[in-house]
Design a protein around this nucleic acid. Structure first.
Length: 888
DNA sequence: GTATTCACG
DNA sequence: ACGTACGTGAATACC
């Protein structure tokens, strides 16, 4: 066997690991508050690489300090770099401990960089018959690739590596490893801050090196190049090119004081490693070590056996032995808990677990009393589902303490699975399986007949809820999110449960009437379109439609999708003038959307027993804290176009002589923006009660404070206001209002001059997101942004826009949630019959007896206004009528 | 299951 | 030069 040498670029890998896990920075700390992202990531990388390479010798090289022989050659080498974040540098001493526990040597050498140590050792190794693997995050080290050296460059995170052999280098770049320094010499390096030849980037550099082999040869044969700007730059920057090549060249003759014989590797020192993991709080690595002894066991770790008793009518007194702090789980196999069957339940207190398939037992004493008790705390998974499910059995679940689903969502909106098992695993709790492994998936999914299997699974679920309560509550506290959970999300789950259970009444006949009218119009339009096209085709198929429009009728192609021509509205709008068929297609689309989604879709979900629609609000889905609505979605019922708006005629009160009453926040997101930015001018506009879009128009068009604003200016200003909330880009704004990018850029610049507070806020929030990896709303709702430090421009830009938008959209969501909770208790306190039915992001819809309408007109706006106190007033507008349509 | 389109805030 | 507006859900076609 050939001997193996492993050389790791310590700084570079630690840096990569740090930024790869940057979005998790808040979550990766040990008990002393030390950040552990880089250490954790480095450990992942080590484990990964040691699976591939079994080294006989290993060393991790570090940079010794800022000054090296390169800074002597060029003062500004690596100048202008941001200081290493404190959160990373504090990890370095511990990283070296980890390396030591792994049984590896660390080494650094004054005046030299880690690269040079690695280069020198790789060369030595090669001479002594070693095969060398270099691990780094820096692609420049690929110059070391050779017959005996492979350079593994970490890719996305730290465990994905790309192996550079000489063949791979030439495949990727078209040049040999030794020519990389020539390439770097010509193109320079912005991160190391050396210049190269101006206007020469990677592409040009490679072209030149392919032609001339090296910088030296290039300059000897410059005559071969035709006169060009590039040639002038080459002549002009000759010295820079030569210097940059020197800087890029790794020194393989560094005066290191170690040699390969002294860095022999014989595996990790288990005891020290365990101690280290304990200190760092790396439980997952610890548990892996336990498994490492029995290496052959690749199956799922055995779930710790649970002992549970099966309940029946005759042994219900067992429930009396349960103590406070109860975990309860009701299994509803269908997603829709309004209609799902009940498969069984589990209940327990941490030591005793009781299970049954017979949910009627829940209505028996003492189980029912326990569930309805206002003093015995219950822990669940999905409080809202439990409340709705139990309500169907005639039980009012009370005193919920802990909701595993809700708390997990608040801790990290990114991993919001609806499966208890999956979620538990994410929290490093493994004594419960996922539903998929026990119930199967797709058509095969079913509750098992085998009692042992089923009872164990649901008892495990109840136990998982119990076990995760303390650690997750602790993390809420660390994130300052306890109030958000206790005062907002948990009470809200009950409010939402009540709204869902109440449901909204639908006039089925009215829907059906509209449906038949639409059917008629559709068939007329269909005939016209077929005539205009000269053939029959499926108008709903973008593929077939594209063929007709762009191939047969030869209309100009405006936009393409991945799979063919785009036929989206904005494209068709532009083709309107070219052919009458386009207009008809647009109308057809609009009508058929109404027909299929709203008429047929809604009719499908009306409950036959009460002629009502019971939507489900998803409380743990969105990344911003908003709700979403499914089965059906009642948050996107048409309103903008009159034809669609008519659908709202079908939403009616559930009693005679009642009305629909609706209140919405006016401009809530812009008001939140004014509050969080503290921008004086924006705040002033709201405090003075101005038309905000007109006011913005006066500022960005530099009009007098009392000047008239024409419709077009107001429209453009409105788009700018929206743009600011969305995390503006000149391109997005230009597309939205059909102006050039340059004009859009000018608008944005003027906006920022006029609203400097907004500008500062945006800069600050983006910077803070880069640093902390997450952003927060008014109530400390948190959203992690894993891509905020991505190298990919698109991903990073998207994350930056999200960083601006989420605190705004999310705080608005916080506010209406608070209002909803206060609203429900206000209705109750005042003894009103009015019911809150729907929430549409900034709007609340109620039904109420006619005589209560005057009360609501005062009460609802009052509660909504005063939900929070901001530096600008909130404004609420109300309307009411016989149907939702008339409540406008 | 993925892509496209379109309804809402 | 890159190539984007923020957050959702449902219907349909097509693989």
């Amino acid at each position: 066997m050939t001997k193996q040498l492993l050389l790791i670029d310590g700084n570079s890998v630690a840096f990569r690991a740090f930024f790869a896990l940057h979005s998790q920075l808040g979550k990766f700390t040990n008990k002393n508050g030390l950040h552990t992202t880089a250490i954790y990531g480095f450990n992942l990388m080590l484990d990964h690489i040691l699976k591939e390479v079994h080294p006989d010798a290993a060393l991790v090289a570090f940079d010794a300090g800022k000054t090296t022989f390169r800074t002597k050659m060029f003062d500004d080498y690596k100048g202008g770099r941001d200081k290493t974040p404190e959160e990373l540098s504090e990890q370095m001493p511990y990283l070296k401990e980890l390396i030591k526990a792994y049984g590896m040597h660390s080494y650094e050498l004054p005046n030299y960089e880690a690269d040079d140590i690695i280069g020198t050792l790789a060369k030595q190794g090669g001479e002594q018959g070693y095969l060398t693997t270099v691990v780094t995050g820096d692609r420049d080290l690929t110059q070391l690739a050779s017959a005996t050296t492979t350079v593994s460059v970490t890719h996305k995170g730290v465990t994905e590596v790309e192996h550079y052999t000489p063949e791979h280098v030439s495949e990727k770049l078209g040049i040999t490893p030794s020519q990389i320094i020539d390439m770097k010499g010509l193109m320079g390096d912005t991160s190391d801050n050396y210049p190269g030849v101006s206007k020469v980037g990677e592409k040009t550099a490679i072209k030149l090196i392919k032609q001339f082999d090296s910088i030296e040869n290039l300059y000897e044969n410059l005559d071969e190049l035709k006169p060009s700007k590039m040639k002038e730059h080459l002549i002009e920057d000759h010295d820079k090119a030569v210097l940059s090549k020197q800087l890029a060249t790794i020194n393989q003759e560094a005066p290191i004081e170690v040699n390969v014989d002294e860095i022999q590797y014989s595996g990790p020192q288990t005891d020290e490693l365990i101690k280290f993991y304990q200190e760092m709080g790396f439980n997952s690595f610890l548990s892996k070590m336990g498994g490492a002894q029995t290496e052959l066991d690749l199956s799922d770790p055995e779930i710790k056996k649970i002992k549970c008793d099966v309940l029946n009518k005759d042994n219900l007194e067992k429930v009396n032995t349960l103590k406070d702090n109860i975990s309860f789980y009701l299994e509803m196999p269908d997603e829709n808990y309004h209609t799902s069957t009940f498969a069984g339940f589990a209940i327990g207190d941490g030591s005793n677990w009781l299970v049954s398939r017979d949910v009627d037992l829940l209505n028996e004493s003492p189980l029912k009393e326990l569930l309805q008790s206002q003093t015995v705390g219950k822990n669940v998974f999905n409080a809202k589902a439990m409340q709705v499910g139990l309500n169907r059995l005639g039980i009012k679940l009370d005193k919920i303490d802990f909701d595993l689903l809700l708390v997990s969502y608040l801790l990290d909106t990114n991993d919001n699975s609806n499966d208890l098992g999956e979620l538990a695993h994410q929290h490093d709790y493994f004594d419960v399986a996922t539903d998929e492994t026990v119930y199967g998936k797709g058509a095969k999914r079913a509750i098992p007949d085998d009692d042992d299997l089923f009872f164990d699974h649901i008892a495990n679920k109840a136990r998982a809820i119990y076990s995760l309560k303390e650690p997750l509550f602790k993390r809420l506290e660390e994130n300052e999110q306890t109030d958000l959970y206790t005062d907002i999300e948990l009470p809200l789950s009950s409010v939402l449960a009540h709204m869902e259970i109440e449901g909204v009444k639908v006039n089925i006949d009215s829907l059906k009437n509209m449906g038949s009218q639409l059917t008629e119009r559709l068939s007329e339009l269909e005939q016209t379109i077929y005539q205009e096209a000269g053939e029959e085709f499926n108008i709903n198929s973008p593929k077939q439609l594209g063929k007709i429009l762009f191939e047969e009728m030869k209309l100009p192609v405006i936009k393409k999708t991945k799979t063919g021509y785009s036929t989206a509205v904005d494209v068709l709008e532009k083709l309107r003038a070219d052919a009458p068929i386009v207009d008809n297609i647009l109308t057809y689309r609009q009508i058929s959307k109404l027909q299929s989604t709203y008429i047929e879709g809604l009719l499908k979900v009306v409950h036959s027993d009460d002629q009502k629609i019971h939507t489900r609000y998803l409380q743990t889905l969105t990344q911003t804290g908003r709700l979403s609505s499914v089965d059906p979605n009642l948050q996107n019922i048409p309103i903008r176009l009159e034809e669609g708006r008519k659908i709202r005629h079908a939403f009616i009160p559930s009693h005679d002589n009642w009305e629909i009453f609706s209140s919405d926040y006016s401009q809530i997101e812009l008001r939140v923006l004014a509050h969080v930015t503290g921008d004086h001018n924006l705040q002033e506009a709201f405090i003075e009660g101005q038309d905000i879009h007109a006011s913005t128009a006066r500022r960005i068009f530099k009009l007098e404070p009392d000047a008239e604003v024409d419709r077009n200016m107001r429209r453009q200003a409105k788009a700018v206001n929206f743009g600011i909330v969305y995390g503006i880009s000149d391109y997005g704004l230009s597309q939205n209002i059909g102006i050039s990018r340059k004009q859009a850029k000018q608008f944005i610049q003027t906006y920022f001059e006029e609203f400097p507070g907004v500008k500062k806020y945006i800069d600050d929030i983006v910077e803070s997101a880069h640093k902390r990896g997450y952003v927060e709303t008014l109530t400390h709702r948190r959203r992690y942004l894993p891509d905020i430090n991505s190298k990919n421009f698109n991903q990073r830009s998207f994350a930056e826009r999200t960083a601006m938008n989420t605190p705004i959209q999310g705080s608005a969501a916080d506010i209406i949630k608070i209002a909803m909770i206060q609203m429900e208790s206000a209705l109750k306190k005042q003894g009103l019959k009015a019911k809150m039915l729907l929430q549409i992001h900034d709007e609340l819809v109620f039904e109420a007896p006619e005589e209560e309408i005057p009360v609501l007109e005062k009460l609802v706006p009052k509660v909504m206004d005063s939900a929070v106190s901001l530096d600008v007033p909130l404004k609420v507008e109300s309307a009411h009528g016989k149907t939702w349509y008339e409540a406008k």
